[in-house]
């Protein structure tokens, strides 16, 4: 119990951050129209690749002979990077199609 109160006290700012981000996230995303739900999903998906930051920090703080951390950490970077680059690239490809239509119409 004591550990939990200590944790809350030490991380209060993060708890605020989470609460506000949740509300902000709901607010921003509920405005996205149905037409754009697939790009929203793939774009959001790319953002979830932000776990790569953790993998980079992990590898940087590992000893250079700690091969378990290095190999699995690098694997983590590869996987998350596929998620990031692929996600943003494919979202861009989809949104390009929507944009083209707008010009053709006007």
């Amino acid at each position: 119990m004591e550990q939990i109160t200590q944790f809350v006290a030490a991380n209060l700012i993060y708890i605020y951050l989470i609460a506000f981000t949740v509300l902000l996230g709901f607010e921003v995303i509920s405005k996205v129209p149905t037409v754009l739900h697939t790009p929203l999903m793939s774009g959001a998906n790319a953002i979830s690749g932000v776990v790569i930051i953790g993998a980079i920090i992990l590898i940087r703080s590992s000893e250079s002979d700690d091969y378990v951390s290095l190999i699995f950490g690098t694997l983590g970077i590869v996987l998350a990077m596929i998620n990031v680059v692929g996600g943003f690239a494919v979202t861009d490809r989809m949104l390009e199609m929507f944009k083209k239509k707008k010009k053709a119409q006007s």
Binding site: I18, I29, I47, G54
Partner: peptide
């Protein structure tokens, strides 16, 4: 899971990014 991993590394951007995705997925 990205957001809670952000807690492991005390990294705000992971928390924010992860929660935004969580919110988007939940709404959809």
């Amino acid at each position: 899971s990205a957001a809670t991993a952000g807690f492991i590394y005390n990294n705000q951007i992971m928390i924010i990014g992860g929660i935004l995705v969580g919110a988007s997925g939940t709404i959809l």
